[in-house]
Design a protein around this nucleic acid. Structure first.
Lengths: 134, 134
DNA sequence: ATAGATGCAAAGAGTTTGCATAGGT
DNA sequence: ACCTATGCAAACTCTTTGCATCTAT
């Protein structure tokens, strides 16, 4: 069976993901982890992301338009807010709860994902220039 | 500037999307529309999907794992349910509402998206087998 | 007649996989 | 030593784009 080994590249990816306070793209994870392991390649990043997701260590956050981003699961259940202006993604720690009732009869809800779109506080007041997040 | 013309391929795509009671993938739209216009190619499908989205006629539904699916906007505000077993996507017509309060202070919510995951009625009863194999 | 729309094929972008080698246990 | 993990490059899949032709207006 699969014995997961602790490698430098895996550790580098892990700390990059843990250090970030927002979901990171594979590209970002690769670049950040390369600070520790310069030779790290995308193939390894993708392979490890998949393993880490299966291990329940991290989870994918998928928003329309962009590819998947990843963040640690231990931050608990939460949702996301994407600013339509600056495109940054923020964590939303509250949860409306009681969503199971929305499912059609006979359907079982195991999980749910909620994303809010709008303006973050910085973009709400005035109309600033875009401030990318990737 | 852009004068949108009414072409057979566009009409075929439109009726395919309208006829479906669930979000369709570009692939599915192409295949369905080919019943009317056999020579229809994916390039045209993608080009028209983009135009139709910009026109506000349809909207993209993006769920983790798969590419975008499209459905008419005139069906009003609703959400989605994806079965972890059969991977089909169903419409959820109710909405928890009052989600704006979840946003951090100073943030303005303009839109939200909610997706439930679990078992559809057909997959709920039988086999509690494993999921995803693709 | 004119300018947008289409179809095919080629090009891109993002992700996955084959294979020989490095490295953890 | 054994066997997983890695790195590179090729393969794949999905989506976009170039270009000559077609067609709605």
């Amino acid at each position: 069976m699969s014995q997961e080994r602790s490698t430098r590249q895996r550790a580098a990816m892990r700390s990059a993901i843990e250090a970030a306070e927002r979901p990171l793209s594979p590209q970002e994870i690769c670049e950040l982890a390369q600070a520790e392991v310069p030779a790290l390649g995308m193939a390894t990043v993708y392979r490890n992301l998949k393993l880490m997701v299966e291990a329940g260590e991290i989870e994918a956050v998928v928003l329309p338009g962009d590819g998947a981003r990843y963040e640690p699961t231990h931050r608990g259940h939460h949702h996301h807010f994407q600013c339509n202006e600056c495109k940054r993604v923020f964590d939303v720690h509250e949860c409306p709860g009681n969503l199971d009732r929305l499912a059609p009869k006979g359907f079982t809800v195991e999980h749910h994902e909620l994303t809010l779109y709008g303006r973050c506080d910085e973009c709400a007041d005035h109309k600033p220039s875009r401030r990318g997040s990737r």
